[in-house]
Design a protein around this nucleic acid. Sequence first.
DNA 1: TCTGGGGTCCTAGGACCC
DNA 2: TCTGGGGTCCTAGGACCC
Length: 400
Amino acid sequence: MDRKILHIDVNNAFLSWTAVDRLKHGETLDLRTVPSIVGGDEEKRRGIVVAKSNVAKKFGIQTAEPIYMARRKCPSVLIVPANHELYEEYSDKLYKLFLEYTEKVERFSIDECFLDLTEYLKPGEDLVKTGIEIKERVKKEFNFTVNVGVSDDKILAKVASDFEKPDKIHTLFKSEIEEKLWKLPIGEMFLVGKKSVPKLNRMGIRTIGDLAKTDKAVLIKNFGKYGYTIWKYANGESNEDVNYIQEKPKGIGNSVTLPYDVGSIEELEVTLVELVQKVSYRLRKKNMYATVVNVQLKNNEFKMVSHQKKLMHRTDTTNEILVVAKELLKELYTGDLIRLIGVRVDGLIEKEEFQISMFDMKEESKNRKLDNVIDNLKDKYGYDILTRATELKNSSEKKS
DNA sequence: TCTGGGGTCCTAGGACCC
DNA sequence: TCTGGGGTCCTAGGACCC
């Protein structure tokens, strides 16, 4: 069954949205017309390029590279901070516009959607024309541009939207793969990243066409399930559906690169508490319980380690998660200098409103009441309104 | 000059059970 | 004198995406 799919991707999303927002607030310079980047805070050792303007790209600046490198390539590059609330606002606007065309919209990331128009085009309406219409409407109504990929296969639509940027529409129907897809280097394929490219190259696979024509049994032997997946993608046979029903998250995590390498567990615990508070707050906002807690550390040599623990019973309270997270940190910590610490909750399950076990009522009630009070204050006055006693203690210790 | 943060999915090995 | 095999659950690590 052939589908009618569009993949729509915002060009330089974070940078474009920042530029549009600044223009709206009276700024006269359009960031998109100069070498500019959205970057992390260098003083806090988070200095990487998050997004770039096309002008910055012309200087060879690449996403995810350290800002100092970007500056070396273009000393006059303008650096603006990230603003996730703003991005969510623009992402929502875009999503709502897409819903005018079909209810089958999958939000693949903050700046990318798949639209399934299979059953939504009226007689005489054309998929490409609809794609052009959406592209032009976004430009006119929101003042930023998108790329549109058009196909009868979901993954091919995604690959197509990546072809030539910005503000372009491309088709990549199954009937066009030999001509348009197979000549491309293997790394252009969705899911083929920098670790897989050399492995495939060693097997003599350099283009997507080489991959498509390789015996799938050989790929499965060498890469397992992944080998079969990319073989299907290369042959335009992903057959994946547009998942327009919003799925519940499977895990929630926060991590932070510390402003300096930390060599004591007491100091790590201070950040651990903050992370657990943030993660458990988000968990409660989603109305979910966690069944697994996970702690990660990255040392000053960038080596990542993690430990996780399945809980005896599901929970959403700060204290219960914190107790386990502290145990995991103790297990993990070997005395290295630590650069990053992270906390995740996994194995999330939805809260059933009317089935609260006796255990919850007895054991959790105190924790839950405390969390409720704190959450309500955070909702009302902003997330940073409250800090725990441990954090206060630590900051006063530091001052003295 | 020094490398972010939020996710998903897969694999492999060990424990444990029948 | 040697030591099954299948299934599930749990954990650690890694690849990939934006």
